[in-house]
Design a binder for these strands. Structure first.
Lengths: 132, 132
DNA sequence: CTCCAATATGCCTCTGCGGTTATATGCCAG
DNA sequence: CTGGCATATAACCGCAGAGGCATATTGGAG
């Protein structure tokens, strides 16, 4: 499935930033404008795209419009990458070893020890937080 | 980190189709061209984008170039939506109640609301909040 | 060496997206 | 009713991206 509008909406880094903002708590537009440093109309357009993709919902509070995150589409994303998840659970270590061997940027003597590196501190693929 | 090129690469439905194709098994370019119904140069450009995003790698076999999927960036995606995953897995009902309270554009069927007005969202910073 | 097959790359066009400025709409206060 | 605030929309511009055609490049066959 993987709705095209969902991917298109999340393709923009500003919109991902907005989604990350709304992950913490619902916010009115003015707060979002101030946070992502864009002009108000531009932010409003981004919010419209997110709304059309179903990623956010609006609650009208007087003149303010409070946007809140709707996790359902992101669950769709999760469902999309479900088939891929088994890939890195099975063969990621072997492949990661190859990649780690390829990179070897400023490592001291990591390459000298074949297959006994028990605690590697890089482990970058898990500590990522949705921040732009 | 949520690399922009990764999202940009997956934003295109053709490229997602290619990724899905390579999920089954590695394939040479000709096969991908035939599968996604585009011209060969266009497909080659898409493959270049996927390559630059690190999503695929190439193995040269005579004149053929066999493309294979690299699951690591998709793992990055998984890490990105990790903070959101708890939204629909743990507090789905509570959040759903809040969403039910929100007024959407199509306020057709959500007319009858029982008497309750104390609306003050509780900030849940207990999660791994993606700081700005 | 020459030819062919497979793929990548260079132009060109065109559509769409993101941004800005100006304006419309809606809601509350006075 | 009128003014002001908060937000959405419209009109417009610039640019990046996606598609096609023609061509360069590379590796193998004869």
């Amino acid at each position: 499935m993987s709705d095209d509008s969902l991917w298109a909406a999340l393709a923009d880094p500003h919109r991902r930033a907005i989604v990350a903002l709304l992950l913490e708590r619902p916010r009115p537009v003015g707060e979002i404008v101030e946070a992502c440093g864009l002009s108000q109309p531009s932010t409003s357009k981004h919010l419209r795209v997110l709304r059309d993709a179903g990623l956010v919902r609006v609650r009208q509070d007087a003149q303010r419009r409070v946007y809140a995150l709707d996790p359902a589409p992101i669950a769709e994303l999760d469902a999309w990458l479900a088939p891929y998840r088994k890939l890195w659970s099975t063969s990621l270590d072997a492949l990661g070893r190859r990649l780690d061997e390829t990179v070897t940027d400023t490592a001291a003597e990591t390459a000298a020890a074949p297959g006994e590196s028990s605690d590697e501190e890089d482990a970058d693929t898990s500590t990522t937080s949705p921040k732009d």
